[in-house]
Design a protein around this nucleic acid. Structure first.
Lengths: 211, 211, 211, 211
DNA sequence: AATGAATGAGGTTTCATTCAT
DNA sequence: GATGAATGAAACCTCATTCAT
């Protein structure tokens, strides 16, 4: 079952659609805040986002952010942690480069509106908080190690170090594309469908990972 | 002479090194402010940067920002315009894909500390100001059109539209790599030298532009 | 009931004296701010008044001005609106010139410290804000129309137009006297009692309104 | 020749029209500044006026205000002094009530654009500066004493004190009318001609001064 | 004498956070 | 658990004034 594990795709089961929206439910309130916060932080960045906006999006009182997450930074860190929990799958290996490429392309195609790509963007945002920064970097490392491993990289074999660099460049392509699709308004890139993106991106990613 | 025009490289001749640093010199003060502002805006983003930081970096009084650039947004727009003036070279064509790739790679290698890559990062920052947004988008378009043209794209030939998409993906790779080198701390990517980056990036870029 | 309606006199029931001063009460806070602001704006003018002074007078935090009134201009406009709400009494007619004169004289005598005259002074202050300006002018018009009507002016009878001019001159006398009593320090004018003012002012006002 | 001295009318000979506008002429520069400052201070009030506006109106460098008048307050005081020098005519007596009334009416009719009425308005403006305040009050006193004297008031005869009050009320009418014509936009008052104003104002003023 | 660059104090406003209900 | 009032720090900006040319 390790086979078939997505690299970047996540399944967002945070807010279970079946449950009616309950007020006076601490857990639910937290989910609403996390969801709204992730969107705002990912799209507008940490500093440009106000806690009042987040609370308004979530339909929740502002003071609850401090109650549940201590501070704005705490909320940001929680968003990041959520992303990481879903993206990192320790023990699971990416078994095939083709599958990895396909997953990445799907996440890219998901942007700019999908939730998967939002999580990627979030990793590019910085709050100045040291705790959040550590999380970000660890996640980056974890990502690229798993991707590099699929390409043959071994931690204890220095002769495979160039594969790590290549995996990181693959990640860079993914991040750059999501970012441009989300913020540049460039056409045809922004509106390109998965089928249009698939060809060139497969070339790039497999070219990088299977030299 | 159009031959040999760099795509992304800029030569920063803003502050002539030979002239002694003059105080009480409006032009010089403006340059100092622009320089400091570009660094901060590129690295930390618009909202996270305070005008006091910029003024302190530049070693001048805060009020001069408003005097010379009307507002923080005005300063941001001026930074962007500066970048554009240097990057856009209307009338000049990029004559060869190999040369374009080499230029892009040089700019990427320049990051995270070099000035060229700072200008790229600046294009990813947003201030919420409408004027600045227009400039950003126009610059993106101009960039990719010139790059696409080198790959054979023609504005009036719809059958070459896929080349535009590929040029934009090439830009995305460049942006993503600069960004990751600047903010992720990922190794070996962050510290990779131009000679290490050259191989895989040339593959990617020429693969995208010369399919 | 229309009989006996004062022209300029207002009954200040804003802060009900019976209720204990409550903190953490938005409505009360707004009243405190309005009260303090009206005093300052009327006495010192709009530009010379700082929001910090107003907040200090009201004994509340400065930020609440923006919370409740959006801006300094918003607060000024709110002060003006309050005045207008009390002074304008649409549908009510001033039935006798003698009564109108008596009311005006009472308001004049109220100055410089009374609340009624403060409201008059406020109408002479200008903030540069377009909204406030409209309110001011409409209020002036309303005032003088009601006063002129008492003197026999009819909107659709051009032969009574001179009565409007006379009513406006009566207003001018009232404004001028309040202003001089408030800001000139002239004696005996400033300290004159209602009984001292009554004689000459009655002459002037009835002379103007009942030619 | 004491006969015929105007009460409020001034002849503005500040800037002699025959002399060509000379630059590098300290005296001329001061006149330009005083003239521009008086307009602004009278119309907009002290606090709402910026020294840059004044300098721009005068076509002169801002720093010269401090050079010639020490400070913004110094300039205001100088404006006031100028007004006073022209308005106060020690030794001259107002010989007839009719003539005084006519002069006052002429000054009122001069508003809102004329220079005479500007000088009146200036007296209603306050800078917070103690020196200026003293000047204002002394001028008020001087004015009303001369007017009261024409009505029969004697400084050492307490039984004529009511005449002083009446003179001050006459001044108040003048001030109020100029103010309303200048800032209220009320019609027909604002546009009324001298012939229209003359009737009712003569009634009021002679009624007050010749009881 | 005149200019324009530079400064610092202070003004309004925003925002994260805390407090009382 | 939730709300909304209140707070204080800090942000951007304006303005009178001083300094160097």
């Amino acid at each position: 079952m390790a086979s078939g594990t997505p690299v970047l795709t996540v399944s967002d089961d945070e807010v279970s659609a079946s449950s009616p929206i309950k007020t006076r439910d601490a857990g639910n309130t937290q989910q609403l805040l996390l969801h709204a916060a992730r969107r705002r932080f990912a799209r507008d960045g940490y500093a440009a986002t106000t806690v009042r906006e987040i609370a308004a999006d979530a339909g929740v009182n502002v003071a609850l952010i401090n109650r549940y997450f201590t501070s704005k930074e705490g909320l940001f860190e929680a968003c990041l942690t959520r992303v990481v929990e879903r993206l990192e799958r320790p023990g699971e290996v990416v078994d095939s480069i083709e599958r990895a490429a396909r997953d990445i392309i799907r996440t890219i195609s998901d942007s700019p509106n999908g939730d998967d790509s939002l999580q990627l963007l979030l990793l590019l945002r910085t709050s100045g908080d040291e705790g959040a920064e550590r999380i970000r970097r660890a996640t980056f490392r974890n990502f690229t190690e798993r991707l590099a491993a699929a390409a043959g990289w071994r931690r204890d074999d220095p002769t495979t170090e160039h594969l790590m660099l290549r995996a990181q460049l693959a990640m860079a392509t993914a991040f750059g594309t999501v970012l441009l699709r989300s913020t540049s308004g460039l056409e045809p890139l922004t509106s390109a469908s998965e089928s249009e993106l698939s060809g060139p991106l497969t070339e790039v990613l497999t070219g990088l990972l299977a030299p």
